[in-house]
Amino acid sequence: MTAAVASDTVDGNVFGGVDSHADTIHVAVISDNGGHLADAEFATTAPGYAAAPAFLAAHGQVVAIGVEGTASYGAGFTRAARAHGFRVVEVNRPDRAERRRTGKSDPIDAYAAARAALSGRASSAPKDDTVAGIRALHNAARSAVKARTGVLTALKSLARRVMDLTAEHDALTRALNTEVTTANPGLRAAYGVGPDTAAQLLITAGDNPERMRTEASFAALCGAAPVPASSGRTNRHRLSRGGDRAANAALYRIAPTRMAGDPRTREHVSRHTTAGRTKKEIIRLLKRAITREIFRCLSTTVTTPGIADLLPLRRAKNITLTAAAQHFGTWPTTISRLEKGTSRNDDLIHAYRQWLQAA
């Protein structure tokens, strides 16, 4: 404790004032007529908080103590003073005009707080320091709400952009499907060949007419021609890594589609799996076989069976897609694609038409 020079101690009513800081508090005591009695500095520690009230009580009967920052730096002293039964009042920071007139120091501010308690200018009950925790949580919650609102705004903008792009992509795909179907209906109707795949294969063929003379040259163009990769006792081939990579990717998209749903391709995969070939080797062989079919579609006119009568015929017979699919052991979407002409399976089309006519 650091004490300043004080006047004689009196036994009457006294008032206290506290200027609080992070590491120290400065305590002043005045008489009930405003005379300065003493002031001292204490550390913001448990011993300091115990000594400060005792310092005030030593000068008389403490009527009230004015404290700056009862819910912040002065919270510790406020709790200690109230535990001793003292009345504590909240003191507002002096205004700038008074500071310019009286100056600024810890003792000056402490005596000013004591005078505020004496005059009644400071009469508010001390702020509850538990509110500080509530205030911090409240501020954090408000900050979270603001951040969430900002994020939601960004997400809504992105969602609208995604919806717009999806609608644009769907419209372009429909237009592309019409163009490629008109340009080469046989290619578009081939199993696993969608609008984008058909378009890429037509582009590759159109950009390289000199490599469309033979099926082998087209396979090499697409990077689907086998390349020897034997070593020692191992006799094997691998796919060429040359050629048009976009065309090769188009062939690759066809392969897993057929492996998943085309009976002929599934039998092909099963046969080669039994023979001990790896999945990579099977896909290489499958891509080469697909290349032969695609070459025929690109180099010759491939007629596709008519499908215009299928949908009206099914509806006339009051047969659902599900019932038709169950009869043929396939998915309703498969029957729907046949009726729309978006996929091709000549054998299934003929069988489907015969079944509808006999129903």
Rank of each mutant, 00 (worst) to 15 (best):
K287T: 08
H268N: 01
V302Y: 10
V269E: 07
N318L: 08
K317E: 09
V302L: 13
L286T: 03
T291P: 06
R277K: 10
L311C: 08
R292M: 09
R264G: 01
G329T: 02
S270V: 02
R271S: 05
T274M: 01
S270T: 01
T291S: 07
R277V: 07
A260I: 10
I307H: 12
T322W: 10
A289V: 02
L285T: 01
T304S: 04
L286Y: 10
P263K: 00
T322P: 02
D262Y: 13
I335K: 03
H327S: 02
T257V: 15
R284I: 12
C297I: 09
T301H: 07
H268L: 09
K280Y: 13
T320A: 14
G261Y: 15
M259R: 10
F328A: 01
R292T: 09
K279F: 11
R284H: 11
A323V: 01
T291M: 05
T320V: 12
R315C: 06
I282Q: 01
L310I: 03
T273G: 06
P332H: 14
P312E: 03
S299P: 00
H327C: 03
R284K: 04
R266Y: 14
R292Y: 11
L313P: 00
R271T: 02
L286H: 11
R296D: 08
D309G: 06
G276W: 08
T265V: 08
I335E: 01
T265W: 07
P263V: 00
R292V: 10
P256A: 15
D309E: 12
K287Q: 13
T330S: 07
T320L: 13
A289L: 09
E293W: 06
L285H: 06
R314L: 05
T304M: 07
L298I: 10
A316H: 15
T274Q: 00
T257L: 14
T278E: 12
T274Y: 00
A323W: 02
T300H: 05
T301E: 05
S336K: 15
A308T: 10
A308W: 06
T334G: 05
R264F: 07
E267I: 08
I290H: 11
R277C: 07
T320E: 07
T300G: 02
